[in-house]
Simulated assay, not measured.
Amino acid sequence: MTETTGSTGTQALVDRHRLADVPLASPSAHQGLLEVFRRRYVLRLLVKREVQGRYEGSFLGFLWSYINPLSQFFIYWFFMGKILGASHGFENYPVHMFAGLIIVHFFTETFGAGTRSLVGNKGLIAKMSVPREMFPVATMLVSLWHVAPQILILIGVGIMEGWQPDMVGMMCAVVAVLIAMILGTALALLFSTANVFFRDFGSFVGIINNYVRFAVPMLYPFSLVRDNLPTWVTHLYLCDPVAIACLLFQRAFWVGTTADPTRSAAETLPDHLGLWTLGNLIAAVLILVVAQRVFQKFENKVPERL
């Protein structure tokens, strides 16, 4: 056990030295998200460093990737499903809720950790000549890495409930993760820059993430929104990319567990889901483009403010 811990510590020290030994150059020569992925070696080191840092000194280690989402699942299921009665008359409510929870957790982790990424890595920013977008991107990839065990849990529960996967559903799952990935990275770029100048933005992001959990059809079905709110409010609701991503993930993993998937999709999913998906995907990409431009405008001021 001691030998294993020592080797892990040695490897982490070697990785830090590799990061520190990246040759210095003008930061302006390495701007842009494309340059981030051209430097995949450094990006892998940052992701590995972040993952190891999360579990350093932990007895359970990677098992926390399963424990944390499962604990959230049971809390929401018990209080919302059982005590408040959200699951009454709703088929396979736990699967519906957990499908939305995975997307929400991925987005909020990307957004929150990405916002803190520049401040949290100020030592590396001062030493390394890499595109500074790399730090929010690395936190997004770490969050994406933790999505895998959550999906495995969801698939296992779905299979026990008679899940019937289909090609359209799998495409919906991929697009859902893509939307959350793009939007989370875009907002992380914007707010990480703002957080360098005003630390209040880190706390503000926490408030936004608390709102997100109730502003998407995770704890309740979309049909409640459609049936109880005016049409224009429903359309405004569907302009939220995270809400669409939740609906897509539920289409992929929840609809197939119901007794009549066609009827479940018609009753709990919005009309023209494909068009709403396309519109929100385009919107997420445009937000990412704007976020990249804003980040580039202020990134040269980041080191002096840190």
Rank of each mutant, 00 (worst) to 15 (best):
F73E: 07
P94D: 11
G81R: 05
E91R: 04
V95Y: 03
Y76L: 13
F98Q: 08
G61F: 03
F78G: 08
S87Q: 03
S65H: 06
F98G: 13
I83R: 00
K82I: 15
F78L: 14
L63Y: 01
H88F: 13
V95W: 06
P94I: 14
S87L: 09
F90V: 15
I67M: 03
Y66F: 15
G81V: 13
H96I: 15
L63F: 08
F73H: 05
I75A: 08
E91W: 00
P69G: 06
F78M: 09
H88Q: 14
F98W: 08
S87E: 11
F73D: 00
F79S: 00
I67H: 03
W64Q: 01
H96Q: 14
G61K: 01
Y76W: 07
W77T: 03
Y93G: 11
F73V: 01
Y76V: 14
F98C: 11
Y76C: 05
M80G: 07
F90D: 06
F78Y: 11
E91K: 03
F78A: 10
F90T: 14
I83A: 06
Y66R: 02
P69M: 08
H96Y: 15
M80H: 05
V95E: 14
H88M: 15
Q72C: 13
P69T: 07
F62R: 06
W64R: 00
F90I: 14
A86W: 11
E91P: 04
A86F: 13
F90G: 10
M97A: 13
Y76P: 05
Y66G: 10
G61A: 00
G61Y: 00
Y66M: 13
Q72D: 13
S65K: 10
S87Y: 01
H88G: 15
Y76M: 09
F62I: 15
H88W: 10
S65E: 12
H96D: 12
F79N: 00
A86D: 06
L70T: 09
W64F: 04
V95C: 12
G89A: 07
P69K: 00
N92D: 11
L63M: 02
P69C: 08
P69S: 12
M97H: 08
Y66P: 08
N92K: 06
V95A: 07
F62Q: 11
F73S: 05
L63D: 02
Y76T: 05
Y66D: 07
F98H: 07
F90S: 07
S87W: 04
M97C: 10
L63T: 05
I83W: 05
S87R: 08
S65W: 04
I75P: 06
Y76Q: 06
P69Y: 05
G85D: 09
W64G: 02
P94L: 11
G89W: 01
S65V: 14
F78P: 04
G89S: 03
M97G: 06
Y93D: 08
L70A: 09
W64A: 01
N92M: 13
K82M: 12
H88E: 15
F74P: 15
V95P: 10
G61T: 02
L63E: 00
I83L: 10
N92F: 07
M80Q: 06
K82A: 10
Y66A: 14
L84M: 12
F79T: 00
P94N: 11
F79M: 04
M80W: 08
F78I: 14
K82N: 06
E91Y: 03
G85P: 04
L70I: 09
G61S: 00
F78W: 05
G81F: 10
Y93T: 11
I83E: 05
L84V: 09
F78T: 11
F74N: 13
W64S: 02
